Amino acid sequence: MRRGRAKSIPKSQTRRPAEAAGEVARLRQELQEARALLRELAEGGGSVVAKRLASLEEERQIARGQAVEAAMAKSKAEGELRRLQAAIDKAPGFQGWLLRRARRRLETG
C-alpha cells in the first residue's frame, strides 16, 4: 500500500455546489418521468405501445408518399432540362449562338 497525500482533483473538474444542485434536480426530474412512463406501460402498456406503433406506421407511409412525389418531381425537372438544352442547341441565328455561348460560360465557370 502506498501512503502519503491523496491526489487532489483539479479545479477544472470540480463543480460549484449550485451547479451540482441544479444537475441533481434535473436528474431527479428525469428519474420521476421515467418511473411514471414505466408505471403507465405496466398498467396499460399494450394500448400505449399499439398507439405509438400505429402512429409510426402512419408517419412511415406519409414519408414514403413524399419520397415518391419528390422522385416524380425530380424526373419531371430533368425532362424539362433536357428539352430546354435541346431547344438551345437547335435555336437558329445570332440569338441561338448567344444562348449556346451563355450556356457554355455557365458550365465552365
Rank of each mutant, 00 (worst) to 15 (best):
A91H: 04
A6C: 11
R82D: 04
R82I: 03
E58Q: 14
R26S: 12
M1V: 14
R2K: 13
A77M: 12
Q85I: 09
R15T: 04
A70G: 06
Q66A: 13
I62S: 10
E57F: 07
R100C: 02
M1R: 12
K51Y: 04
A77K: 11
V48D: 01
R64L: 14
M1D: 04
L56G: 01
L98F: 12
E80Y: 07
L99E: 00
S12Y: 01
E57N: 09
K74M: 07
D89W: 03
A70F: 08
R101G: 03
L81W: 04
E69C: 02
E78S: 04
R82H: 06
Q66C: 09
L31M: 15
L37Q: 07
R60Y: 10
V68N: 03
A6T: 09
V48R: 14
A73S: 11
R103E: 04
S75P: 00
G93W: 02
R28H: 11
W97Y: 10
G93R: 02
P92S: 09
R101M: 13
Q13L: 03
R2W: 07
G96Q: 00
S8Q: 09
R15G: 00
E43K: 11
E43S: 10
Q32F: 14
L37V: 05
Q66L: 15
Q32K: 15
M72F: 04
D89Y: 04
A91V: 04
E33S: 13
L41P: 00
G4S: 06
M1Y: 10
R52P: 00
E40R: 15
Q29R: 14
R52F: 09
